[in-house]
Design a protein around this nucleic acid. Structure first.
Lengths: 254, 254
DNA sequence: CGTACACCTTTACGTAACGTCAATGTCAAA
DNA sequence: TTTGACATTGACGTTACGTAAAGGTGTACG
């Protein structure tokens, strides 16, 4: 099957101008030129265009795409990784911008009248930043670079519905834990429910769950006074209680 | 205190070229021109430059900044909010990009461990983007800015369960419609069921339902070949059949 | 006083990835 | 043969400057 610019453009959902441009910059040449000067594309060109559009979707520059599709020995994975790192930098800048804009808005309004959605948008990044600032290093050391990165990615990708869910969960963990604490028994039904809720809450931030990590984390709540302070805010001893409950829940109690 | 381009540039941390450019586009004119043609800036200009740079920091276009700094009655807060919304969209796209790049990296590395959630996140945004790109303008014209925004918001806020539901519905609409098409009667029970399913499907995307809009949309399926192509993919005439069925379903058949 | 050197000026091209005319040629159907 | 859809090659516009080029100005120093 052979295609003219228009046909190919329609198929791929791009303009004819784009195809001419790709010809111009030597990224996609037609298979041949008809006697009347028309660009004629074949199956090879279709395949190549798909490749190009795929990389373009990823936001990669056409110059780089050119290298990828022209030299078969090109290290595509390496290019992708570099590209990702650039994207991450870009996002950090964006996040800063957004934070500044929001700060400005709320200050000019003299009062916070942000919608929930807006709060959330700011919140997400704030959460990451705060986490990073406060616990980034320790968590990194304990669980490794990758886990932290994955966790951050996960938070950023949360939808509003998910955010509402996680907010609700946070509260439920707190109240259930407080309730359970009164029983004094980390093996009690309600304490186990709290442990389960805590796991659910955790899974919003971790891409993978493991009993060991869960148990380890709650142990850290006890060891690290910053976490302890958070959990012991209402009732001193809550952090330990949670640890015990989770250790039972995960079967880590020896 | 008076400043030349270099002095002011150093103070503000920008290039002399930038100052000349700002002069050129009438966003910051020097207080006066020296006898030898040098640009001389005063305190007023310093203040104004600071304002400009502040807005620039927020990533606002110079044209818009010009409006802000030149007209004192300009609604800065509104501009900021609009800008923020643009930034947030940008970040979402960026997040999607990053997710896709990472997906690609891990798939080329043979790890391919995307969670359902991640898949879904990619899908949603792609859906919105595609809709916007392809039909945004028309739909906007037909149904107004607000409806479109609400629709997008709705898609973004869908939970995974809802997504599964809507995916299921899409399939059910297709199969039921194909089944109904065989009867050749848009008033038949199964055709009416298809219309009803189509309504249910629609309600995942529309914040409000009206018979008129539903009937109008299916008419558009017939008028607009891109939609027609989608529905007529298996059986030519299906788009018309659906329109007739929905027109009966909504009582719009006159 | 000449000169070196920093600083100033305007003019103008380059950037990324096309969109958008404009002027003109080609093909197939009526 | 006409018409209308489709093709071609320019070439300018977009954003916010960077980067010469070619030349004038200010001043410190020998």
């Amino acid at each position: 099957m052979e295609y003219t610019v228009q046909k190919l453009g329609e198929m791929a959902g791009i303009s004819t101008r784009t195809l001419r441009y790709y010809d111009e910059i030597d990224i996609l040449k037609p298979a041949r030129i008809s006697s009347s000067g028309y660009r004629i594309y074949g199956q090879n060109e279709v395949d190549r265009l798909q490749q190009i559009l795929f990389y373009r979707e990823l936001g990669i520059k056409l110059e780089t795409i050119k290298e990828i599709v022209t030299s078969p020995s090109f290290d595509g994975a390496k290019a992708l990784k570099e590209h990702r790192s650039q994207l991450l930098d870009k996002r950090q800048q964006l996040d800063l911008l957004i934070a500044n804009v929001e700060k400005t808005i709320s200050s000019t309004e003299g009062r916070m009248t942000m919608s929930n959605n807006e709060k959330f948008e700011g919140f997400k990044q704030k959460m990451i930043n705060d986490n990073e600032k406060k616990y980034g290093k320790e968590i990194r050391e304990k669980y490794g670079e990758d886990t932290v990165k994955k966790s951050n990615t996960k938070v950023k990708n949360m939808t509003q519905a998910q955010h509402e869910e996680v907010t609700r969960l946070t509260e439920e963990v707190t109240t259930t834990l407080a309730e359970a604490f009164k029983t004094g028994d980390p093996a009690s039904d309600i304490a186990q429910k709290a442990a389960d809720l805590h796991k659910q809450w955790l899974m919003f931030y971790w891409s993978e769950y493991s009993k060991e990590a869960h148990a380890g984390l709650t142990q850290m709540y006890v060891d690290d006074e910053r976490f302890t302070a958070y959990y012991d805010k209402e009732q001193p001893g809550t952090a330990e209680f949670l640890r015990d409950a989770v250790h039972i829940y995960t079967g880590m109690k020896q």
